[in-house]
Each structure stands twice: as structure tokens, then as C-alpha cells.
Amino acid sequence: MKRLIYSILFIVILLFAFDRIGGKILWELNKYTKNRILVKINRIENGLSESVVIFGTSRANNHYVSSILSDSLELSVYNAGLTGSRDIYSQYISLLPCVAYKSVPKIVCLELSPTDYIVKDDDPYSAIRRYALYIGMSEQTDAVFKEAGYYPYYQISHLYRYNNTAIQLLNGLIYSRNEKAEDNGYIPLPPPPHFPDTLKNSDFVFSCDSNKVKYIRKFISLCREHNILLVFTVSPVYLIASPNEYGVLKQIADENGIPFFDYHSAGLYLDHPEYFKDNVHLWDKGARLFTSVFAHDLKMYLDSVGFFKQEVE
């Protein structure tokens, strides 16, 4: 029995040492990785200096061409959209470091998706796991992890904080990404072998998750506290929109005086499958056309609210 206790104790001590040393090594290595997602997260976490920042999932990442927006608005633009950030919690965590530094964005465009407010069967917080290595950096970020129930596990194991990112991190140390293809955060998608050929119905079941709605409101409040002009957007999809798919989000936007640019229900490009990589993603050609339309609409809106006049003053 004594032998067994000693063995278990030895393993626990060894495990603790490996865990803490491994955590430190990975923290350092993370600074050198060239993995796209991790480079972007690192950039966001270290504060962004651009005037316009776009948040959202892969749809945001692949649909908003930073240079087109920048040319049209004559403002610096960064596309902070991240593949897999499929809920409002990760958008909120991404916004936190942006307002923690001196240089705060003037405009934030939040690309919304139904997953930002509907109830889903799987773990609603799972997308925030990739931010786990930044635990302990800000109280607000920690609060989200506590709410998700992950916090104690990440406190126990520092290696576990890298469970979602370790392989990307190592991969990013070996392979260097094609930086030339990127445009201030925007990543163009190549054309697909086959364009989507069937116009399917959007298949979401719209049951509202009150906690997600709470976080949308927190996102709005955070922008308001820092005088950031917030804009909601929904880019095109090759799907037939369900009625009221974005009803809840539009209502929140109305209540808070937030403009809602809806290119989804408007059916933009429904007769142009050749702009899509799949039913929910535009490839580069479609994204460039869409960004031009959006840049024009956003500029008109900014003109109408006197944003540029305020800038000059």
C-alpha cells in the first residue's frame, strides 16, 4: 500500500512539473508560430491599431476584403473574423483586448449568424477554448471561462490550456503560411471544384438562448462604453432564408439603435451560385463583389450619421 502511494505521489509530482514546464515552453513557442488562427488571436490579444475591425466566424473572415473597405472608407481596416468562432462568447472575448489598450477601434462590424443566439445541443461555449492560454490576462475573459465551467480545469493543468491549439501551434512552427494571400486578416477562399448546385432551405431551429442574448447585449454595452460605432451585418448565403431567422437580432439592433446590414434575407447573389464556395461561404471573387457593395452601403450610412464630419472635427 505504501509503495502504491509513493508511486502515485511520484507520478503526480512529475505530472505537475511536466505540466508547468510544458505550459511555459508552449507560451514562448506561441509567439513564433505562423499558424493563421493563432497569429490572428495573438494579434487581437495584443491590441489592434486599426480604426475598423470586423468580428465574426469564417464567414466574416472570408467575406470582408480589408483593402476594399479601407479604400472606400479611407480608414484602416482589420478583419478579425476567425474560423470556428461560432458563438457570441468568442466574439465577446475577442473584443475585450481591443478595448483594453490605448488605441480603440472607431467602428466594429459584427457579422452575425443564428448560432449567436439559438440554443444548440452541443457545448455552447466550446469555441472559447482556443483562448484558454490567455486565462489570467483579464478578469472579464476569466469570467466567461468560469461561467463556461472550464476555469478550474485550466487552473489545474496549464498544458490542457493548449489542448485546442497545440497541434496548430506546432504546425505553424514547421510550415509557414502564405502571407501574400492575406489582406489584413482577410483570407481569400479558392474557387471550388463544383459550385453549390441546389438552393436548400436554411435548417436552423430557432429557439432563443437567453445567455447568448445577454452576451450580445454585453458586446453592445462594451462598444458603447468605449464610443465604438457598432454595426451588425449578415453576409450572403446560398440558402433560402427562413422567415424571422434574424428576428431576435434585428429586434436587439432596433432597441439599441444599431444599423443591421442584412444581405442574407435580401437574397443577394441567390441567382449566382458561381460566387460561392459552398452554401455559406463566398469564394474570393464573390467576397470582393460583396465587400464593394457593403463598403458602399456602410459609407452611405456613416455619411448619414455624420461619422466623417466628427472625424474631421
Binding site: F10, L159, Y160, A166
Partner: peptide, 23 residues
Amino acid sequence: YWVVRHTYIAAAICYILLFGVLN
């Protein structure tokens, strides 16, 4: 060797913590 056997266990757990799919 006792140390090798135990280190093997600790290292395997670390690998799983880092690269395992823990969902």
C-alpha cells in the same frame, strides 16, 4: 527502472492532455 516506468505514465498523460481530443 521504477523512474522510467513512472515517467512513461506521466509523459503519456501529458501527451493526451495536449493532443488528445477531449470532447
